[in-house]
């Protein structure tokens, strides 16, 4: 009996010590970056867990490729070649446009826009948390990525980096409830903020006045405000507008172009702060 009581007391002391320790860790890690090194070490330990967790998914993909028929592969190849030729033409046009813009800037004496470089990245881990739309990508500080860099997929704005480690970064997706992107409607050049609404949900434009000229089908692009995304990147297309007369606002829904399910390469926009 005495032994059991001693054991219980010992266990209580240990519990209290660990409880206090965890609370301190929680307080420090949620308010400062002092524990970043510890987190990097722990990330190394959890790598086998994430690798094994992703195995079934990867295996399904590989088996899918294996059983693709030659005709399907040929079709896919043809599509890619067509895309490549179209992109080559677009690139040539863009180069020409860039040269014209540079000439005009010289004539007008205007400053050059902020130069942005792209770092190619791949998704290595999808955060399983139900409440948060986050992924981890395989580039970080060593590749020049910093906090609050914009991330794009081939179709549009994907999200932004929120935490950067030496060789990986955590990306908050554009449809996360905590994410907001400064945007403009291409047709009218009216500025808005597009907010995420959680998993599988569309984006919404905040505080749209009842009299604002927005129509279904309008393209929404980044406005360049906020310094995370340059102007003109595809965000989405307006798919619904509802007037809320009582609040004198319009509820505008935007279908994002980004496709997180496509598992394609991502581009991290690394803004060059030095202006030419």
């Amino acid at each position: 009996m005495a032994l059991r009581t001693a054991h219980t007391i010992q266990s209580t002391y240990l519990f209290l010590a660990l409880f206090i320790c965890a609370t301190l860790l929680l307080a420090v890690s949620s308010n400062t970056r002092y524990l970043a090194t510890v987190e990097i070490g722990l990330r190394f330990i959890v790598q086998p867990i994430t690798y094994i967790a992703n195995l079934p998914h990867k295996a399904t993909e590989q088996i899918g490729y294996y059983f693709d028929s030659v005709a399907e592969l040929q079709l896919r190849n043809d599509e890619l070649e067509l895309n490549l030729s179209q992109l080559s033409a677009t690139t040539a046009e863009l180069d020409q446009a860039k040269a014209t813009i540079a000439q005009l800037q010289t004539v007008l004496g205007a400053s050059a826009p902020i130069q942005a470089q792209h770092v190619l990245a791949e998704i290595v881990y999808v955060n399983p948390s139900r409440q948060r739309q986050e992924v981890t990508i395989n580039v970080g500080l060593n590749q020049g990525v910093t906090d609050d860099n914009g991330v794009l997929d081939p179709w549009g704005v994907f999200g932004q980096t929120v935490e950067v480690f030496p060789n990986s970064s955590r990306v908050l997706l554009a449809n996360d409830e905590r994410h907001a992107t400064p945007v403009l409607v291409k047709r009218t050049r009216r500025y808005f903020v597009a907010s995420g609404n959680g998993p599988n949900e569309l984006l919404t434009l905040d505080n749209v006045n009842l009299s604002a000229d927005v129509q279904i089908g309008d393209e929404v692009v980044t406005s360049g405000l906020g310094g995370i995304f340059p102007e003109g990147l595809n965000v989405g297309v307006i798919v619904a507008t509802n007037d809320i007369v009582a609040e004198s606002i319009k509820h505008v829904t935007v279908a994002p172009h980004a496709r997180p399910d496509a598992k394609s390469y991502l581009r991290v926009i690394v803004m060059d702060s030095v202006r030419e």
């Binding site: 240990l14 660990l18 860790l25 929680l26 990330r43």
Partner: peptide, 28 residues
């Protein structure tokens, strides 16, 4: 309790939670 604390830390990293949150909950 110590193992639970360690597992909690791993879970914090896996879920992107602040360090200590899952340790606190598992130990409790």
């Amino acid at each position: 309790l110590i193992v639970a604390f360690g597992v909690g830390l791993l879970l914090d990293v896996l879920f992107g939670d602040p360090l200590g949150l899952n340790s606190l909950l598992l130990v409790s």
